[in-house]
Design a binder for these strands. Structure first.
Lengths: 230, 230
DNA sequence: TCAAGGGATATGGCATCCCATTTTGCCCAG
DNA sequence: CTGGGCAAAATGGGATGCCATATCCCTTGA
């Protein structure tokens, strides 16, 4: 087992102030561990073991596992426990084919309704991202990058897009942090972000949709290539 | 209460041959009732009541309610039970904005890889649909229509599209069967189906994507108008 | 008559027990 | 040494009990 009882829940048990909060919290803990690789793909998540470690009963753990299953992160088989699914290169391509469609829709809709304030926020994030890129501060670059993507999906006016995209991204994040691409891909990515900003400034919904879809398809290709090279 | 113990589960309890089958079955029963309107929007689904009626314990019912919640069909609040959410016109627009993006993607991908056999299947369904339309057999028309949409999403080569689309459609179906549109809309819809067939015959992915997206956006508009007129 | 307070009831969340099935490991026969 | 079979342990699923809290109704006082 890869973690002792000492690195326990990090957070204290989150006092059940809201309904189903415990199961949600358990799901978050497990999701984090899956994403960070603490639970390797293929490893088995046993209800009784987790409930003992987190010092609660099996019921919320069961619910959490069900949640993770619906998110596509694990497979649950009877008497064999939950197993972390591996995200293959092919999975990444399929995932980003859909994510591209969703985020493209978000960009398209946002371009049509974007407010000056929202544009300012985006300009700010965009500028920060460019700086981090120049400086070579990868972690900050990726954070800001994610921030921009999240912002677009949040601001597009359709929460359903955000919800669907969130679930898909959880699966994609599994394993690597979608980190470090090649310098060329990085440069291309920055360029695509710049193109989106131009489309948004011009309120050109069609262009925004096109640019952003290509950006995400490229991201998918890049991630798939990375997963393949393992 | 709108149903007695005599119109029980319709199906016999589904023998737990596969794992989690019971919860899944309960979810199916409840979903059907929500879609058919047996449970009106706003009505409360009480764990204990349902478990008593279906003659099983609260556990699978509870899981089923969680599933329905993740599908966006119900809201669960502590001590207030699960309540069926109402699908408003605005919801329909948002839903179909996303569904349009997904099915458009499916059509685009399918056009690129469609086999002669698949095209034959589609031609067959399409012809049947046209016949039903001419004859005015609405139920058959809608069935075949759904069949075509399902087929496209299934055959596009990306199961993630199918999954995401399925969840969204469950919410859209809530209430009316998405039934009866105006004659003009019906004619337009048929025309759009015909346009898709042409694009698929030509293996023109771009045209297929465009046509199909418009078709679904129109469907969303139509449904929203219907919901609004209530 | 109406409003406010209190208690009974309803309800979902968590813990725990039991069961069916699968997995695992061991022992013995060949 | 190997393979098969059997028993014990492991494991998830379902059932049930208890608890905290929200809801609802009835009572009571102004």
């Amino acid at each position: 087992m890869s973690h002792s009882l000492t690195d326990l829940p990090d957070d204290p048990p989150p006092a059940a102030d809201s309904p189903t909060a415990i199961a949600q919290w358990v799901a978050d803990v497990l999701r984090e561990r899956i994403v960070k690789g603490t639970y390797a793909p293929g490893s088995r998540l046993v209800e009784r073991r987790i409930s003992a470690e987190l010092e609660l009963s099996r019921t919320p753990v069961r619910e959490a596992l069900k949640l993770l299953h619906q998110d596509g992160l694990i497979e649950i088989s009877r008497n064999r426990g939950a197993q972390v699914l591996r995200c293959t290169a092919e999975d990444a391509l399929r995932l980003f084919d859909v994510i591209a469609a969703l985020e493209s829709l978000a960009a398209e809709r946002l371009a049509a309704v974007i407010t000056p304030a929202q544009l300012d926020d985006l300009e700010d994030m965009h500028a920060r991202m460019l700086t981090y890129h120049k400086v070579g501060s990868h972690a900050d670059y990726f954070d800001t990058n994610s921030e921009i993507h999240e912002f677009i999906v949040e601001s597009c006016g359709n929460p359903i897009v955000q919800d669907a995209r969130g679930r898909l991204m959880a699966r994609a994040r599994q394993g690597r942090f979608m980190a470090i691409h090649s310098p060329e891909r990085l440069a291309q990515s920055v360029q695509e972000h710049e193109a989106l900003m131009q489309a948004l400034r011009a309120r050109d919904a069609g262009a925004a949709a096109l640019v952003w879809r290509q950006h995400l398809l490229h991201t998918g290709d890049s991630l798939a290539a990375m997963l393949d090279s393992d």
